[in-house]
Design a binder for these strands. Structure first.
Lengths: 168, 168
DNA sequence: TATTGTTATACTCTATAACTATA
DNA sequence: TATAGTTATAGAGTATAACAATA
């Protein structure tokens, strides 16, 4: 959302206007996401499914609750999503030893392979873009600035860690 | 996608690794998008619907074809999406005077009002975050760096301007 | 009583392809 | 023949609420 135009709509108070950052941010993001999505679909996954896989990657697994919070997928949706991943053999589940209501979700070997393969493909495809666009010091700088923004948002967003169930 | 972890998966060749940028980029983007989505839903719109509204904002209208390319929504989906916006009274349509197959979509007065109101709410809500996160010079710098990335992607992506119909 | 996860509902978006009406 | 949009289909994500099992 908010991809194009809008400079005029800001009221032009002379001050910061987040649009000056947001628009380039969104555009840079979309540039990368289009490629990303393409790769993911070639693997036969939807973006949401890969989101789960990427979240599970390099972890020892987690409960649905945690997965739901990290992926921003509500638990109702997550059940169906996990069903599909399960039937594709990309995840495994196990009843939690400490809480029998809960099940722990992990990547299966096949899931882990997809995780790594997609990541690698992604990175090897994208690296040249970034190397062409920015010098080494610029990358470091960009990284620093982006992290400042992220931190500012997560500061506020830390009212509990994430939405619990309904979205308003 | 590709929100967390992954440093380990890159092969760590010592060189750039786009992950160093991508992860902060995605996180910064998500920080803003969560707020954005919330506002949009409060208006009774879905993200896709607002995408169309934002694309139509401050223009004299455009054909479905153009709208489809700019929003990355396939024309089949667009028909239904426009139906919903039409029934909400947020857009108007008119048969193109030069090509009777084509219809020109515009924001209605009500649609324009939503466009401006959402934009304004967005900006006034977000500005403080950015002002707290970055100094004036840093914003300018960040903007410049992001634009370089965007340009690099759109350079490559300019193989015709956008997908025509199918996505592969 | 509160929480974890499932089920159910209704809508929206997605990809795709076949179709129509123009061009 | 090619293009602009529509319709149809099947799958998947979304929000929400009611529910069962367990804590």
């Amino acid at each position: 959302m908010m991809k194009n135009k809008g400079e005029q709509a800001s009221g032009s108070s002379g001050r910061a206007s987040s649009l000056r950052i947001i628009r380039p941010l969104v555009e840079a993001y979309l540039g990368f996401v289009r490629e990303s999505d393409r790769n993911i679909r070639l693997m036969g996954l939807t973006p949401g499914q890969f989101d789960v896989i990427a979240t599970l990657g390099d972890t020892d697994g987690m409960s649905c609750r945690e997965l739901s919070r990290k992926t921003l997928v509500t638990k109702g949706t997550l059940t169906g999503l996990l069903d599909r991943l399960l039937s594709k053999g990309l995840i495994s589940e196990e009843v939690s030893p400490t809480d029998r209501r809960s099940r722990i979700i992990r990547l299966s070997e096949k899931g882990d392979e997809i995780f790594r393969r997609t990541f690698d493909a992604q990175i090897h495809y994208l690296d040249p873009f970034f190397e062409r666009a920015l010098k080494e010091e610029e990358m470091e700088l960009l990284r620093t600035l982006l992290l400042k923004i992220r931190d500012e948002f997560s500061k506020k967003g830390s009212n509990g860690g994430g939405k619990e169930q309904t979205r308003e």
